[in-house]
Amino acid sequence: MADAQFLIVRNLSCAISRQTILSDIQLFVPKGKIVSIIGPNGAGKTTLMECISGLLPHSGSVEIDGSSIASDLRWQHIFYQPDQILPYPDHGVYATLSFFRSMFLVSQPRLNEIIERLRLQNVLSKCVKELSRGYQKRLLIAIALISKAPILLLDEPFEGLDIKQTKEVVNILLEEREKGRTLLLSIHQIIDAQRIADLFLLLSEGKVLGSGTLAQLQEQSGLQTGNLEDVFVALT
């Protein structure tokens, strides 16, 4: 089964200051799918993303397209967009996006397209620190979309967005999936996760409670019917 997968995480464990944050995580993701990592606050979602992206030390392996990739080389395949960061707060929004465009060697039309898709035109001359929470989040998503990495890891991509904005971002991410990108989204709102993801990874206290499609999770939890929330409650 694992052979058909694009991204494979095997036996991933992580400890920070001698405290185990993640324990023996397994994850199998086919190419062009959206995986939602679901769990309560403190479940280890962000740590898992940072480990997969190679930013945090961990044990276990991360395989991409059949090859095990060392932590310091994963940037070639994965781009991870953290939550609650404020890149270059004193710089203009356009200058910030242009910087990432140059670093990712992306064309100007592509940047313009991303700016339009995320409706950032009106704030281009503002400083990053002057943006509202929603715009800050859209800027972060724009930066992730500028990246050419085939795997995107987005930490809480809908945090700070209103319902309309969330819907727009969901559509943008679905388009990226259609283009063949694989996305891992850390989401704590189960309803948002259900709206966008093909696969789910339920995480609690650093351990995997269940993974797969909704049907597979229902089977794992012993429920015949029920939504993701019911499955999550049943598994915890």
């Binding site: 940037w75 781009f79 991870y80 953290p82 707060p89 990432f100 670093m103």
Partner: peptide
Amino acid sequence: GVEKQFGSMKLLLQICP
């Protein structure tokens, strides 16, 4: 320090490893 303080170091390490 601004990179560490506002979290952009995590981005910088990915775009310029």
